[in-house]
């Protein structure tokens, strides 16, 4: 295993420290480094908080900043942060209007966030939005439903903009839940990621194999298939995600191609080109686009395609200025 690290034990802490130092202009550690928050909070705005396991960088810490998250917590690799971390984030970020917690749909994350809400709920107005955009797990028709993956970025961006405009907690939750029903993602891996602690790949693929329907924790997908052209791969992903949400009249598509960690920008843009063609062939107008490495699974080679069907109001919120480490736009003439 070749990774830029010193020890497996300190890897997450060192990486997060590097993040905070690189972006010290606008982020700071919370007490005992239990969370990361904006350097300057806005009084009276609902605080948007998220968190999850390490190994998905830049998510979520890369989304802390104006127009998006107020604070984020990082757990061990692929492991939810603890309630104590989440409570610290709540205490740090709540400026009076309460906090909305954005949680990806995994039992571990859900239970830790739920406990944090129970334990801190007496002193803060708190609520939670659960993101479950991954197509794959809807297939099994069981469990707590679909996993939360790259679509989480879209929920956090749009809710972040709405919170910035003063939307109250209950409305934010409603906005997030509505949005979640109109986002679908699906991933493909050309190679597993390597977990530093075990020095093992989450799964190993042959030189001509790929894994279809992977999540972001190295879970195997629904099928191992022979590797093929990007048109065939992306075509299948688009077919599946577009088939799973009905394009309501008037909604506009945001198309998001996300790298899983080890895939270079040129391949992501090429894949976006395929995806754009396939989605438009379905008469779904692509009005907004995002291409890049935002929601990763360590160094996994692969990508996910996310389709979000947005209302006009949500498009406006998507376009609103954002100034985080990973997403930054707007505000320039």
């Amino acid at each position: 295993m070749k990774k830029f690290m010193n020890t497996a034990e300190t890897m997450v802490a060192e990486s997060v420290e590097g993040f905070v130092r690189a972006h010290e202009a606008f982020v700071v550690f919370g007490p005992e480094r239990k969370c990361i928050r904006r350097r300057h909070l806005t009084l009276g705005k609902v605080a948007l908080i998220s968190g999850g396991g390490a190994g998905h960088e830049p998510m979520h810490i890369g989304f802390v900043g104006h127009g998006m998250l107020d604070a984020a917590c990082v757990g061990h690799i692929f492991t939810s942060p603890t309630p104590s971390q989440i409570i610290t984030a709540i205490e740090e970020a709540d400026t009076g209007a309460g906090c909305l917690l954005v949680v990806k749909n995994y039992d571990g994350d859900l239970m830790n966030f739920e406990m944090a809400i129970e334990m801190a709920g007496d002193h803060h107005s708190l609520d939670m939005v659960v993101v479950s955009d991954d197509i794959e797990t809807s297939r099994t028709g069981e469990g707590r439903g679909r996993r939360g993956v790259a679509g989480t970025l879209i929920v956090e961006k749009i809710l972040g903009a709405a919170a910035e405009r003063g939307m109250p907690l209950a409305e934010l939750k409603q906005l997030g839940e509505g949005l979640n029903t109109r986002i679908r993602s699906m991933g493909v891996a050309l190679n597993g990621g390597t977990v530093p602690q075990t020095e093992r790949m989450t799964f190993a693929l042959g030189p001509d194999e790929m894994e279809m329907g992977v999540g972001i924790h190295g879970e195997p997908g629904h099928a191992r298939q022979p590797f093929t052209t990007s048109d065939a791969i992306i075509g299948h992903l688009c077919e599946t995600i577009a088939g799973d949400i009905a394009a309501a009249p008037g909604t506009k598509a945001l198309l998001f191609v996300n790298g899983l960690g080890g895939t270079p920008p040129a391949e992501l843009y090429l894949s976006y080109n395929s995806a754009r063609r396939f989605i438009e062939e379905k008469a779904i107008p692509v009005e907004r686009s995002l291409v890049g490495t935002y929601v990763t699974s360590l160094d996994m080679q692969g990508l996910s395609v996310t389709l979000a069907l947005l209302t006009d109001e949500e498009i406006v919120l998507w376009d609103a200025p954002v100034a985080t480490a990973a997403l930054h736009w707007g505000g320039i003439p």
């Binding site: 396991g53 492991t79 603890t82 309630p83 571990g108 239970m111 830790n112 406990m115």
Partner: peptide, 14 residues
């Protein structure tokens, strides 16, 4: 709870 971020953390803490 503070030691474990996994599913077992909240389950046994509860």
């Amino acid at each position: 709870l503070n030691a474990v971020g996994a599913s077992s953390g909240p389950l046994y803490a509860t």
